[in-house]
Write a protein that binds this DNA or RNA. Structure first.
Length: 422
RNA sequence: GGAGAGGUGCCAGAGUGGUCGAAUGGGCUCGCCUGGAAAGCGAGUGUACCGUGAAAGCGGUACCGAGGGUUCGAAUCCCUCCCUCUCCGCCA
């Protein structure tokens, strides 16, 4: 969520950002300011009442201590009214603050000034392209390669679990393992601390990173225990330090974690979900940064460059898009998508999304540091994939296939695969 | 899963209805002492919110695992939940 005092002092900026992000109207901004004013007035009133009642209780205590029972009794009789009033005010306040918070949750993060204004993905800006996208020619889409080689078993996955839960068989299982290892090794070498995270999170964590209330339907739930299966490692990893206060010297903090990711992906269909394009369960190595507010924009650039370097080392042609305001998502201030070329499908596939969340997530999580003046201040969080596996696997199969039907193994993966060709 | 014991500030740990935001010790910060350091001595050391102020600050409220309740008054009593530890069971 945004800082309410920031909204109060910059209402027009927030409204513009909201409309640019494609919200229908920005009335929530004025509404939240009004609701907050109401809340503050009530809190002031309640605090005064409580102060009076505390003073009385203290006095009663003193009288009792001195054995002046009669006087104490008289005072106790006086307290009835204010007690009811306090109770009533407390109920009103909890209602009002809930309304205020709901409004606050409905206001998206303000896009950074450097983000292009636009409505749809057509207005995203191509920030960079790398490599020569190969033509179709004799190249097959990865699902044909995989089924011919019996490397990915979608049918048995459907039988055992459901659509979107494939088995990876033999060389494909090994390729996945190779990628996970290589991604983690690269990240650790770069300076990320490796974490192994829980695959289920509780409601507080889902709220901390903004899956609740915004994107609740993307997650699978375990209702009996109140858990959500993680849609990305971002959720447990960013929540790792929830409610903590960092010393300034400990910043920045970099984490990497491999986890499976589960997404319900309700409403997806057709070529979008063909093969490995979109799955309900997939593997991903995630990168998370927790940084000083002044550094987050620069940190986003280095995060993107790091993710790009992985594709370059894999020698997979890609392009980087700077997402426009309308296509970038609710909680981000700025976002880059990395798309790898799929020669078998002749289309780009998103394999990494690098985002700066500013203070939006950190405020929900009360993730803070102590600044030069010794005051606590909200940190900034970022994350990006480094990288998501299935589409990388798809792109490798399609890019590295030979006309004879074999698959060459990218150089950086050969030591993990134990071979140069599969 | 069963039985029991617990969850207090940065840490350890006292506190079983009133003057407790919380003893004491350790840590940390600053000052004194020293050629410098250690030791010693002195002072300080939570978070959030509301009000006020340009700010430093000042006044107030809340927080002793979380949420409810009893009471004029709750860290302390009651209820629910979560977590930790010990023993038993189960188990990779």
């Amino acid at each position: 969520m945004l800082d309410i005092s920031f909204i109060r002092t910059n209402p027009e900026l927030v409204k513009t950002g909201m409309l640019n992000k494609g919200e229908k109207d920005a009335s929530a901004v004025d509404a939240v300011i009004a609701k907050d004013e109401e809340w503050r007035a009530l809190v002031t009133e309640l605090d005064q009442l409580r102060a009076e009642s505390n003073a009385k209780a203290k006095q009663i205590g003193q009288l009792m201590g001195q054995g002046k029972k009669e006087e104490a009794q008289a005072l106790i009789r006086e307290t009835g009214d204010s007690k009811d009033k306090i109770k009533e005010l407390e109920d009103t306040i909890s209602k009002v603050s809930e309304e205020r918070d709901n409004l606050l949750y409905s206001i998206p993060n303000v896009p950074d000034a450097s983000v292009p204004v636009g409505k749809t993905d057509e207005e995203n800006v191509i920030h960079k392209t790398w490599g020569e996208p190969a033509g179709q020619e004799w190249r097959l889409p990865h699902w044909d390669i995989a089924s011919e080689k019996k490397w990915i078993d979608f049918e048995r996955g459907s039988k055992v679990t459901g659509a979107g839960f494939p088995f990876y068989v033999d060389k494909m299982a090994r390729l996945q393992r190779a990628l996970i290892n290589w991604f983690l090794n690269e990240a650790v070498e770069y300076g990320y601390t490796e974490l192994q995270a829980p695959y289920f999170v509780n409601e507080d964590s889902a709220r901390g990173t903004g899956q609740i209330p915004d994107k609740e339907d993307m997650m699978y739930t375990i209702p009996r225990d109140g858990f959500f299966t993680i849609p990305t490692a971002e959720v447990p990893v960013t929540n790792f330090h929830r409610d903590e206060i960092f010393a300034q010297d400990d910043l920045p903090v970099y984490y990497t974690a491999y986890t499976p990711c589960w997404r319900r992906e309700a409403g997806s269909y057709g070529k979008e979900v063909r093969g490995l394009n979109r799955l309900h369960q997939f593997d991903k190595v995630e990168l998370v940064k927790i940084v000083h507010p002044d550094e987050s924009n620069q940190e986003l650039e280095t995060l993107r460059e790091y993710a790009e370097s992985l594709l370059e080392k894999l020698k997979l042609p890609y392009r980087t898009l700077l997402m426009c305001t309308g296509d970038m998502g609710f909680t981000q201030t700025k976002k880059y998508d990395l798309e790898v070329w799929s020669p078998g499908q002749q289309r780009w596939l998103e394999v990494s999304s690098c985002s700066n969340f500013g203070s939006y997530q950190a405020r929900r999580m009360q993730l803070r540091f102590r600044n030069d003046k010794g005051k606590t201040e909200i940190l900034h969080t970022l994350n990006g994939s480094g990288l998501a596996l299935p589409r990388i696997v798809a792109s490798i199969l399609e890019t590295y296939q030979t006309e004879a039907g074999d698959i060459r193994v990218p150089n950086v993966l050969q030591s993990f695969m134990g071979t140069e060709i599969i």
